[in-house]
Amino acid sequence: MDALMARFSQQTEHDLRAAGWEPGRRVDTTAWRNQLEATGEVHMHAAAEGFLGEFGGLKVKISGPGVSSAREPFEFNPWDLHGEEGRFAGWGARLGKSLFPIGELDGGRFFLGISELGEILLVETWVATFGIGDAALENLILGVKPDELA
């Protein structure tokens, strides 16, 4: 078994590849940084830059039953969250985390953010966590209900 196979489950790797991801993928995050940091409310920390550098721009088109909730489509496109910086700053302050917008879940019904520790969070009028790093991607793709934080 190679290192890539150990990183993601077969289903997660399949769905990420279908969205355009491949090992070693890199995209420029400068435009997202400039746009979202312009308000002064959010800061693209290293975890956000690393995550978006690998997964930014992907649109994962999934549906159907999941492990503990529906498999919902999501997109890692911070452009769509311009104007929501205050929501991320406010929740970040309340939770004691630095949150940076990374995309949307279920066609914009929910927002997605990432903490400085690589934790992927659902952000709405409440906040829930999908977990940290690759485990969070697994949970998003496999339909694992996030744990509500506030």
Score class of each variant (00 low, 15 high):
Leu117Tyr: 02
Ser98Asp: 15
Ser63Glu: 14
Glu75Lys: 06
Gly107Phe: 15
Glu22Thr: 04
Gly108Trp: 04
Arg25Asp: 08
Leu16Asp: 05
Gly56Pro: 11
Phe100His: 07
Val42Asp: 02
Ala128Val: 00
Asp134Leu: 11
Val42Arg: 07
Gly131Asn: 00
Thr30Ser: 14
Asp15Lys: 04
Ala128Cys: 01
Ala48Asn: 08
Phe130Val: 03
Glu22Ser: 06
Pro65Tyr: 11
Gly40His: 03
Thr39Leu: 13
Trp32Val: 02
Trp126Gly: 02
Ile102Pro: 04
Ala3Glu: 15
Glu49Ser: 13
Arg33Trp: 06
Ser69Cys: 14
Ala70Glu: 15
Thr39Asn: 05
Thr29Leu: 05
Phe76His: 11
Glu37Cys: 10
Ile120Thr: 01
Ala47Cys: 06
Ala70Trp: 10
Thr125Gly: 09
Gly56Thr: 13
Thr129Val: 05
Ala89Phe: 04
Gly143Cys: 14
Thr129Met: 08
Gly24Pro: 02
Lys59Phe: 10
Gly20Met: 04
Asp28Phe: 01
Gly83Asp: 12
Glu54Gly: 13
Pro73Trp: 09
Glu84Asn: 14
Gly133His: 08
Leu142Asp: 03
Ala46Thr: 07
Gly40Val: 04
Gly24Ile: 03
Leu52Met: 15
Glu124Cys: 12
Asp15Thr: 00
Gly40Phe: 04
Leu121Gln: 03
Leu137Gln: 09
Leu58Ala: 08
Ala31Gln: 08
Leu122Glu: 10
Glu75Cys: 07
Gly56Arg: 05
Thr30Cys: 01
Glu75Leu: 10
Gly96Ser: 05
Leu99Trp: 05
Asp106Pro: 05
Ile114Pro: 02
Gly64Met: 01
Thr129Glu: 03
Phe88Met: 08
Gln10Val: 13
Gly64Leu: 06
Ile62Thr: 02
Thr125Ser: 15
Ile62Gly: 11
Gly20Glu: 04
Val123Ala: 03
Asp80Met: 09
Leu137Glu: 10
Ala48Pro: 09
Ser63Tyr: 12
Ser115Thr: 06
Glu85Ala: 06
Glu54Ala: 15
Leu99Gly: 01
Ile62His: 09
Leu4Thr: 03
Gly113Ile: 00
Ser69Phe: 07
Glu84Cys: 08
Gly24Ser: 13
Glu148Tyr: 09
Asp134Asn: 12
Gly40Asp: 01
Arg94Pro: 00
Gly92Leu: 02
Ala18His: 01
Val42Ser: 07
Phe8Asp: 09
Glu84Pro: 00
Ser68Arg: 12
Arg109His: 10
Gly40Tyr: 06
Phe51Thr: 05
Pro65Thr: 14
Ser68His: 12
Glu119Phe: 02
Arg109Glu: 09
Phe74Ala: 10
Ala18Ile: 01
Ile132Phe: 02
Gly113Ala: 13
Ala47Leu: 04
Pro65Gln: 15
Gly20Trp: 01
Glu49Cys: 14
Met5Ser: 14
Arg17Pro: 04
Leu142Ile: 04
Lys59Pro: 03
Glu138Cys: 00
Trp32His: 09
Asp28Gly: 07
Ala19Ile: 01
Val27Arg: 07
Arg7Lys: 15
Trp21Asp: 06
Leu122Met: 09
Arg33Glu: 00
